[in-house]
């Protein structure tokens, strides 16, 4: 029963929207209609316009994510190994982390131009800190006695890292990947909003400036598709990989 209601909720919502729009209960000039948004999305995708711009956004997102994740992970491991450096840097890193990074977007435009590079740098700054802070936090949750036991049994540093460090870090890295990908997409879009010549954010902002509501909404539909394409497989993978851990994280 619950499943049926759950599955019916979305079609019912869209149906009500469509019907009340057609009956004139809603101002369609403001909200548009599901059917016309769908038609516009199909038209924009079919013309190849949206595909090209989506590819640009995805490239910014993926490259920025990879660069940010790798550097963040490395710096996190280094900081984890040197307590003095960690204690010295953490308050500064936390302060930088608390600046709304999208606020840096105009500065990056000034430094790196309106093209690909300024978006890439913005994405890197978002993803880097997520990985860095998660890795440092994850390393700190490792219980000292586990390490001590292994040491007592004569394990080398590398073995300790293999047996305790990496298994402990995996859930943290997974969480960082989820958050990092979401932030990477946001960074790319925001960068494009602020100034760009290509990308999904550019298309949407361009449509908004021409008061083309359906153009904006078709961009939002495509973006939702991208988000779902990322979130659903990752959540499924997380449930499989970390089933043993579910209770702990609650």
């Amino acid at each position: 029963m619950e499943r049926i209601v759950q599955a019916a909720l979305l079609p019912v919502f869209i149906g009500t929207w469509e019907v009340s729009g057609r009956l004139g209960w809603l101002d369609t000039r403001v909200l548009s209609l599901p059917s016309s948004i769908a038609a516009r999305t199909v038209a924009d995708v079919a013309s190849g316009l949206l595909l090209h711009h989506t590819a640009v956004t995805l490239a910014e997102m993926v490259l920025g994510f990879l660069a940010g994740a790798l550097t963040g992970l490395l710096c996190g491991l280094v900081l984890g190994a040197f307590p003095l450096a960690r204690h010295t840097l953490m308050p500064y890193l936390a302060a930088i982390y608390s600046i709304p990074r999208p606020a840096l977007a105009p500065l990056f435009v000034l430094w790196f131009g309106v093209g690909f590079l300024s978006k890439l740098v913005l994405v890197v700054t978002l993803v880097y800190f997520v990985f860095l802070l998660h890795v440092v936090a994850g390393l700190q949750t490792i219980e000292a006695r586990h390490v001590d036991w292994l040491r007592t049994l004569g394990a080398s540093r590398r073995q300790v890292l293999q047996r305790v460090g990496i298994p402990h870090l995996l859930p943290w890295l997974f969480a960082s990947t989820k958050l990092g990908l979401a932030l990477a997409l946001i960074g790319a879009i925001v960068g494009e909003f602020i100034s760009s010549r290509a990308g999904l954010g550019f298309v949407m902002m361009h449509a908004a400036e021409n008061l083309d509501r359906e153009g904006v909404l078709s961009g939002i539909v495509v973006l939702s598709g991208v988000v779902m394409g990322i979130i659903i497989p990752l959540s499924a993978l997380e449930r499989r990989l970390f089933r043993w851990q579910v209770d702990v994280r609650l």
């Binding site: 946001i186 908004a208 961009g219 939002i220 979130i231």
Partner: peptide
């Protein structure tokens, strides 16, 4: 799902509204 959607992307829509 709503939570995972980047709300920032609504900015152009708000600009129109």
């Amino acid at each position: 799902v709503l939570n995972a959607f980047p709300k920032i992307a609504l900015a152009p829509l708000y600009l129109v509204w």
